[in-house]
């Protein structure tokens, strides 16, 4: 397994090496040592490759990921897996704000807590957070699923579009146009699949589902306060 030590290797070389290996589609597995909170690590990967980051990362780790698997053994800084298209990103520790922002696909699996704005503007990504999430999570979320085993902070799902939010614990407050919705069999099925993929020890029946009330879809003067 090739090892890239960030004490000895420049970020540009680390990313260029990973990007080339991803493109070669050789299913190679890399280890990055001494990440020391560096930014923009393992970004723009476009192919089947597995990267294990031993330690904690800075901003935008695994940004715009496609097909690759990126596994961070520590915590991740702001914007982890931002705009992810596909593949899987696993964070053993906590994730800072904007985790999975604008993600279009793939699975972001956060074993610890996620900070504020988790899943902001998400467009199809699946995010599973084993701990809690911070305020303004799933703001303007458009598509995809956000699963939270712990609690959610203030203003969950504000200005939500069609993303599905599943929370097992408490929700401090719901944002504008976000409401609790009935958990139908098809939702339990989706949730079961996500929990299984994320290796989460929880039952779908323990969760509540939240979604858009769709009151902001067409302007109505009586809802103007919600804008």
């Amino acid at each position: 397994m090739p090892v890239l030590d960030m004490l000895k290797t420049e970020l540009r070389e680390v990313n260029a090496t990973l990007q080339a290996a991803a493109k070669a589609k050789g299913n190679e597995a890399f280890t990055i040592e001494n990440p020391r909170g560096a930014h923009a690590m393992a970004v723009g990967l476009d192919g089947p490759i597995s990267v294990t980051v031993k330690g904690s990362t800075g901003y935008y780790c695994a940004g715009m990921n496609k097909l690759a698997t990126v596994h961070v053994t520590g915590s991740a800084g702001p914007g982890v897996a931002e705009n992810m298209m596909s593949g899987e990103v696993i964070i053993e520790g906590d994730a800072s704000q904007y985790a999975g922002a604008t993600g279009h696909g793939g699975l972001l699996n956060i074993k610890g807590n996620a900070s504020s704005r988790c899943g902001i503007s998400m467009k199809g990504i699946d995010i599973v957070v084993h701990g809690n999430i911070g305020h303004m999570s799933a703001f303007m979320a458009q598509k995809g699923n956000l699963v939270v085993l712990g609690n959610a902070g203030d203003a969950l799902g504000d200005s939500l579009y069609e993303a599905r939010l599943f929370v097992r614990g408490s929700v401090k407050s719901l944002g504008a146009d976000c409401v609790e919705k009935e958990m139908r069999p098809e939702h339990l099925e989706i949730l079961r699949g996500l929990l299984e993929r994320a290796g989460a020890d929880a039952k779908p029946e323990e969760f509540k589902r939240y979604g858009s009330a769709r009151n902001l879809y067409h302007f109505n003067i009586d809802h103007a306060d919600a804008y």
């Binding site: 909170g37 930014h39 990362t57 915590s75 800072s96």
Partner: peptide, 13 residues
């Protein structure tokens, strides 16, 4: 402001 400032602190892990 960023985690990387902690990287050299003793016992940070």
């Amino acid at each position: 402001s960023e985690y990387r400032a902690f990287a050299d602190l003793p016992g940070i892990d």
